[in-house]
């Protein structure tokens, strides 16, 4: 089914500010996209180690437990509570594949780009999408990213996969992390 090429994990203090996340990213990027929300920042930090490592046409498959929480709160407060028009960038970012877009832009990839809403058990869902694309020769390889913001978390994992013969038994990240290279 798969061959695991590389993996990356990130566990941050949930109280880390967006400004600190931007600062961390800016140390690696010559040009920072503007007006990214917290989900996009976390996604980019998870994708960062894969820059220059991915084949053209690689697919990006992102799962998150929530849209960007602060962004969604601000939208509801502005639109429903205050009955004002939202800030355009807050609305655009609320379309959760905005994080995928920024990841594709940073990684200079123009292949398939999928976002799924999944918190508790995302790995089978992500891996099935990637497997379908690998099986149908739509992509040469796949980058799977999982972001967590709920329950006072700010963490995630990422895995680079190609077609191969290995299959996880329980669809846990730990299996991808320890799979034979």
């Amino acid at each position: 089914m798969f061959s695991v090429i590389a993996q990356h994990q990130l566990q941050l203090d949930a109280s880390t500010s967006d400004k600190a996340l931007k600062l961390q990213l800016s140390q690696h990027l010559s040009q920072m996209p503007r007006r990214m929300d917290r989900l996009a920042l976390l996604t980019l930090l998870l994708a960062l180690p894969f820059r220059g490592q991915l084949k053209p046409g690689c697919g990006i498959y992102l799962a998150a437990d929530y849209p960007s929480l602060a962004n969604m709160y601000a939208l509801l407060d502005t639109v429903v509570v205050q009955q004002q028009l939202p800030k355009p960038f807050e609305f655009v970012n609320s379309v959760s594949n905005a994080a995928c877009f920024y990841a594709a832009q940073m990684l200079q990839l123009d292949g398939p780009n999928m976002f799924i809403g999944a918190g508790r058990e995302p790995w089978q869902a992500l891996a099935e999408l990637a497997y379908a694309d690998l099986h149908c020769n739509v992509v040469p390889e796949a980058l799977l990213i999982r972001c967590l913001q709920g329950n006072n978390q700010l963490s995630g994992e990422a895995v680079q996969l190609r077609a191969g013969n290995w299959q996880p038994a329980q669809w846990q990240f730990s299996e991808f992390a320890t799979a034979p290279r």
């Binding site: 999928m114 976002f115 799924i116």
Partner: peptide, 8 residues
Amino acid sequence: AIRIINTA
């Protein structure tokens, strides 16, 4: 299984 897809 249920998958929620959001690509705008």
